[in-house]
Computed example of a mutant assay.
Amino acid sequence: MANYNNRELIKVAYYYYKKGLTQAEIAEKMVMSRQRVNRLLKKAINENIVQIQIIDIDKYNLELETKLEEKFNLTQSVVISAMDEKNITSSLGIAGAEYLEKLIVKDDVIGVTWGKTLSEVANRLSYNNKLEAPVVQLIGGMDIAFTALQPDEITRTIAEKLGGKPYLLYAPAIVENKETKSAIMSDKSLKTTFENMEQCNIIIAGIGELSTNNTLYKQTQFNEKYIEHLLSRQCVGDIGFRWYNENGEIVEHDYKDKTIGYDILENKSNALVIGIAGGESKYKAILGALKGNYLDVLITDSDMAKRLIEE
């Protein structure tokens, strides 16, 4: 490579970074080829003549996000700064709502699951009636005490915020036998909802961990027998009540054919799947979801991101 004197190097860098000239304009002005201008600019960076500083890069966890995206082949990740466990759900809800507000455009069809974090997303979402985006409930309802966490309530809230029609699934998440499921699935009133599940191009999903300490699993529907059976099959997490193990492999279990709703794990199609979850207890569930390639976007906290990257 030719020897470039510092004056020439600094002048090219000054024209490019300070004056905003294009490489072609600099080449013409300094009577040299564009390739030479390009080499000089690279040399200026390599020799620290030009030092690029991105303000607030640590504040927004950009390096963690990039490492997550590269390691798990994600389209995008959003990492919020770590905080105590009691505030993490609301902070993830805010981050999820902000992400969706920038993402969703008219003609999008949104699919949703359920959970505390998705309830927070729904509540934090801004009103934008112009979008007229239909929102589809992807999983059946549950017999739980917390109405705000019900998938139909989350679906209604998001649809109202986006000015679209809610498509609700008036059915339980899990039934006693396959015959009951078949009867429900053949109901004409639910046909439109099931058809719209296939049309979703954006899916907003909570990630559930399998834990006997989780208060939601102490409700009537999620009894001890259900949990013990899933634990015996090495399940660690679920997306919409579709269970997988720590390697991200789909688990066959006795309740699989009794679960009503969209199987996100097996029917990912072309939808952009956005997983929103964080907190120490979710580690195995999030890692399994990433290993199974079930997510396109992950919104999580910085402690979780660091742990996933180090895994």
Results as ranks from 00 to 15, higher is better:
Y60D: 06
E63A: 08
L64V: 02
L64Y: 02
K67G: 04
K67V: 03
K67C: 07
T75P: 00
V78K: 14
M83A: 08
M83K: 11
E85A: 08
N87L: 09
I88D: 03
I88Q: 13
I88N: 02
T89Q: 08
S91F: 05
L92S: 03
L92Y: 02
L92N: 00
I94A: 08
I94Y: 05
E101G: 09
L103E: 10
D108K: 02
G111T: 00
V112N: 03
T113S: 06
W114L: 10
R124N: 15
N129M: 12
L131Q: 08
A133V: 12
A133F: 00
P134T: 12
Q137Y: 15
D143I: 09
D143H: 11
A145T: 09
T147Q: 11
I154W: 11
T155S: 14
T155W: 05
R156K: 15
T157R: 12
I158C: 01
L162H: 11
L162V: 04
G163I: 06
G164R: 03
G164S: 01
G164Q: 06
K165C: 09
K165A: 10
P166K: 07
P166C: 03
A171H: 09
A171P: 02
A173W: 03
I174V: 14
V175A: 00
E176S: 06
N177E: 04
K178P: 14
S182H: 07
M185L: 13
M185I: 08
M185C: 13
S186C: 08
